[in-house]
Amino acid sequence: MLPEHDLTSDLASSLSRLTEEVGREHERAAHREQIIDRLHAENQQLRHGLLQEALTPVRNGLYRLHDTVAREAARLEPGHARDLFEAIAEEVAEVLARTGADRIEVTAGDPYDPNLHRPAGTAEGPANTVVGVVSDGFRCGDRVLRKAGVVIGKEEIS
């Protein structure tokens, strides 16, 4: 049998080794937990993002339809045909709204905002102001899905 003090010191050193090891394991586990938390949060966002991304080609097709019909309506003389084209464009915007894409309200006279407007050209008019809308923009909450195509005023145009 070993002397008692040796046994005690052995036990003490084993215990301190064990404590150290448990401490390291604990740290690693905490690190893993952090990662899992983050992955979980990202996964939630991703699931939402994937849904949104699946809608992208559908929305792109609808934007195109909306643009074309609205453009043709604008070309027509006032009358039944024009009303009909305008109604179709409105219907398409309604369908887009049902996918979560709301129309960005832009009217001539609005100050130019590069976050909402994509300049499609310039024309004579008050500087840095929207003078015409060539295609509607759409947003989903705070996120701009498509900027509105606008014509921006430039004061002296020779």
Binding site: P114, N115, P119, A120, G121, I152
Partner: peptide, 12 residues
């Protein structure tokens, strides 16, 4: 300004 908005601004 750098990026998409800068690209769009080329028109102006």
């Amino acid at each position: 300004v750098v990026g998409q908005t800068a690209k769009d601004s080329a028109v102006l």
